[in-house]
Amino acid sequence: METILAIVIGGLYGTGLYLMMRRSMVKLVLGLALLAHAANLLIFVGGRLVRGVPPLVANGAIAPPDGSADPLPQALVLTAIVIGFGVQAFLLVLLKRGYTLMRTDDLDDMRTTET
């Protein structure tokens, strides 16, 4: 299953990057969102996959059952998801503000600071 997910991750990176190379600001944001998904999945898969044994300690037990999933990548991904959300919310508002100011979604029109 790791192999398949590796392909999915590659696909997410590819489409994300493709969207980022478009001229539309909205596509850019969508692309970044895909990139974030890809990175999160990558960390998750990097810690290897385990089916159906979450790292929870049963009431009264001392440790999670043997063969339970690696909890650390999960914690890392959780942090990354939340951070990603914060960034994305800001990005969306930036996009909105940009559109209100410039009345365009075309990134090629946004070169006034450099030319």
Partner: peptide, 18 residues
């Protein structure tokens, strides 16, 4: 093409690690 190369490389890389 560029994006696919990058994505493909990432897959490859991950597979090596895995």
């Amino acid at each position: 093409l560029v994006a696919a190369t990058a994505g493909g490389l990432m897959t490859l890389f991950l597979l090596i690690v895995l």
